[in-house]
Amino acid sequence: MLNVNLINTLSGLLLLTSLLVIETKKPRQSAILYSFQSLILVAIFLALAIRMEADQLYLWAASAFLTKVVLVPVILYRALGKVDQTVTSLNTVSAPVSVLLAALAVVVSFTVVSQIELKSAADFIPALAISVAHFFFGQLCIVTQRNLFKQILGFCLMENGSHLTLALLAYRAPELVEIGIATDAVFAVIILVALAGQIYKRLHTLDSAELQTLKG
């Protein structure tokens, strides 16, 4: 049973790192933290692979390592090198409020997940709840952060959450499905980074509050 506890603990660690990603002032540091978080995710995948004797999950772990620990952080890190770091961290709500909201997300996720009965995930209710909460964390990040790159990181967090849910519930899905979802995720980051880059180049801002001219 060590593995189950390990998985649940590691998932808890995910939450912690994602709070750090959200609250860190410098986006470049956030990107590094995100890489670290993805490493934890890979560890969870490996643990799950052992626990469930699911060979596919080794593959998942490998692809997650490639894309989430290496590729996406590098893209973000490099892109952030080209932009002015001083424009960075503006929030729509203060840090205590966003932590409070995060706590709320955790509570909601636990209540919802404990309601459903899934034979395949009975042991992993905490991990499942955390993955859902993690998904909400990502959304929280997108809503509360005005820096476009922080919003992209929010998307990445969201994606990590759903990826964990997927690993817990749908690890038996054909590989092609996982590849499809992973490709979408990577491309989403690439496109978001490219768009943010264009916006920076063209409008000289990374503040989403300045992107509010369209109304009505």
Partner: peptide
Amino acid sequence: GTRPALEAAWKYVVICTVGVAFGLY
């Protein structure tokens, strides 16, 4: 590539990817 176009594109991608992620769930 104009201001409104970029603004619209950003909104579109962010809101839709977040939304569609619910669909994934």
